[in-house]
Nucleic acid binder design. Structure first.
Lengths: 343, 343
DNA sequence: CTGTTAGCGCCTTCAC
DNA sequence: GTGAAGGCGCTAACAG
């Protein structure tokens, strides 16, 4: 049932029906009710595809995230979907796997297909070079970190500062040998690198030495990666007394490894995460972590994007969103006697 | 840059360009290379919106899930997105919150807007009546359970049987007082009800009595709901020696409540879940659960949907997908001496 | 094999 | 205030 069907039914022109549907222009009350009646009788719904073609706008955006198996991203998706709904936007999703080529591909393909008006991307794999060289067909807003000058809008938290805060918390508890799980070397670790930088800043500020042996790499941010990294740390001659995991999922893997090795948390080892996913409130022990304001990230990103979609051409913007430290069970003052009997 | 631009550039008609783009019809090799050159030079990408309008197909489907904060659903989304990509389909997502009115609304609005060719829905809130009365504008395939004859295709596992299996496992371990966390009464609990039925079947088959005191209700399937339900069970004069949670998230909440109350799992209480989300392999203890074949659910659902989109008009189909029992640390033979000293 | 052309359903500029 | 008509970019029936 099309606009024309309704027009015929009501004995008016398409124009008038369109006016009523879009509450556009002045329509006489009598005419309005007559058209509305026809609309109801025929149960008309506009064809959004046709509307999109005409207007050059689809009312949809794409949300490109690395991986739906990592709760941080799905929690972000949850917030984004909610806010998008409120703005009358539809959300199309895809996963990049954190791979640079897929990220680039999707921006290219999705953007140029005109299926969406804009793209929200959490880039994990892309080189900054690639990002800044982009000339996307639709506006793109980046979620997460931006290490260098880019041509795209961006929203995220202050990763360096947040990491410094949580590591400082560990130091304040009396920990001296704090390990960190870093991302692998390569383009994928922009965010990870910032968090490691925050870690080093905290050590330096406290006058603690930086021990490269306490930096262990994980290929990804999944639980098994954290488990493997932690196991590796436990083989050290002088194991750490605390570990900072730049993602909660890594921390959950670490907790499991510690449990398997009979190391109790927090008595023998403090564990800190990053992201504050819901699971962090239920793990055993519950996890001390940094809580980025995910809702705000989503909201700000959508606003930047809407703004660009409306044609704004101001220079790239950088929105910093809040975060806070959540102290839970997994971190506690260092025991005077470690499991090795060292003091 | 449109099809016509390319046609002009190559000095041919749009028809020919279209033929080349869609590798349709016979095009002479010479012409093909000429057009291809123009295509490349102008860096042409088809406008999918225009194509959709013309063809009446969008190449997109909607995936409507209750809640992205529940990992089972995001894992299902992950599988669906992956398979959809392989089939060349784009996925649009939205959350229903498990509310009937939102489920109906979304089917109505999304379906009739012609933005998608079909809908995948995991209905949690909808009455069967409402479901069977639906006349959706696009094909709808249901994920999860279907309790009565419906007019829609459906794919899911055998919930009754799976639940019976895992409860039978508990019984085999020597548990006598097995509790279950059920969904609240109302339309929302179709799946939950089936799982409780499986639980009762298992008890009956083993000749164990059914004790209504051991059935506790949870409003939703989130971790806090499981925690509250478990706490309630622990206040019983005669608490259970095992608990079956019809969703892993409930089980994680239960594990936390047990931990807080100083009840050790599995020594003093066995805990079983349902869904086998990734977290179940990392919780402390790891969780015994039922693993539905999520990948297969997604794949079958997409195939049913594609089939309907292609115009198939066979009667409603019901695809049953496999599952298996994963035995992990959270269940163990019942101790002869319980914490109350009862035998 | 290739060119011409009529819509897909909608919005909106122009006349009335 | 309302009607008629063009066109968004693409596909495919109809010629040639």
């Amino acid at each position: 049932v099309t606009l024309r069907d309704v027009a015929e039914r009501a004995g008016v022109s398409v124009r008038t029906v369109s006016n009523v549907v879009n509450s556009f222009h002045y329509v006489s009350p009598a005419m309005r009710t007559r058209v509305q009646a026809a609309l109801d009788e025929l149960d008309y719904k506009p064809n959004l595809i046709a509307r999109s073609l005409k207007q050059g706008r689809t009312g949809a955006i794409a949300l490109l995230l690395p991986d739906f198996l990592i709760p941080y991203f799905t929690e972000l998706a949850h917030e984004t979907i909610e806010h998008a709904n409120n703005l009358g936007l539809t959300v199309l999703v895809d996963e990049t796997g954190g791979q640079a080529n897929r990220e680039l591909d999707l921006i290219e393909v999705i953007g140029r297909s005109r299926q969406v008006d804009g793209i929200l991307l959490n880039p994990l794999g892309m080189h900054q070079r690639a990002l800044s060289g982009l000339r996307p067909a639709v506006p793109v807003v980046l979620l997460g970190e931006r290490t260098s000058r880019s041509t795209l809008d961006h929203v995220g938290i202050d990763n360096v500062r947040a990491s410094r805060e949580i590591v400082t918390h560990l130091i304040g508890l009396g920990h001296k040998r704090i390990a960190v799980i870093a991302g692998i070397k390569g383009p994928a670790d922009a965010t990870s690198r910032l968090r490691v930088r925050g870690y080093r800043n905290a050590l330096a500020a406290a006058g603690l030495p930086f021990d490269p042996n306490l930096v262990v790499e994980a290929p990804l941010w999944r639980r098994p990666d954290g488990m493997a990294a932690m196991s590796q740390l436990l083989t050290l001659k002088r194991p750490p007394d605390a570990v900072f995991c730049p993602a909660d999922t890594l921390a959950f893997g670490a907790l499991r490894a510690l449990h398997d090795h009979g190391v109790s948390v927090p008595e023998q080892m403090s564990v800190a995460g990053f992201d504050d996913v819901q699971e962090a409130q239920f793990s055993i022990p519950t996890l001390t972590t940094i809580a980025p304001d995910k809702s705000e990230i989503a909201l700000q990103a959508l606003q930047l994007l809407s703004d660009r979609i409306s044609g704004s051409i101001v220079p790239p913007r950088d929105v910093r969103v809040g975060h806070h430290l959540c102290i839970r069970q997994s971190t506690a003052p260092r025991q005077l006697i470690t499991r090795n009997g060292e003091s």
